[in-house]
Amino acid sequence: MLSVKNPKDFYAGVLLLCVVAVYALGLLDLRIGSLSRPGPGYFPLILTSLLFVFAVAILINGLRTKGEPIGAVPWRAMFFVTAPVIFFGATVKGLGFVPSLAITAIATCMGSTQWTWKSALLTALVLVFFSYIVFIWGLGLPVALCGSWLRSLFLSVGVPATSLNLCY
């Protein structure tokens, strides 16, 4: 009777097999070539096969040897760490550096179970100020302080273009 005795190994094996499947799919489009003319698929084919062997071995380990359970996952932290990062990537151009970073910082603070509005706002303020000094003023990072979306928003409510110099 097969049962998962070592979940850490078992799921690692499963996960790696999923990776193998994705790469196998990608390999379908690639020319393998020969030893004298290795194609773009030559190296990946060797590596994918190797990973397949290792993944199966790890999976079998998970069925045969004893191991510890995986343990609880901090979903809240996971969400509040990754979602703000994605938000930053998605909005740094549109909203601009300052609003995007401020929202990202506030949202990240919520990842802690001990967060409060006061400390989150304060952290965001300090961070935005510090980053502005270091990255925009000091290093000249080429990014708008206030982005193109806000520019169109301001324009649509009648703000004259002449006063929207920092939004582009």
Binding site: A161, S163, L164, N165, L166
Partner: peptide
Amino acid sequence: WLLAAAGILALGISGA
């Protein structure tokens, strides 16, 4: 309010 906010954001005076 928005006008004021935009005014704060924009420092120089210019046209396109």
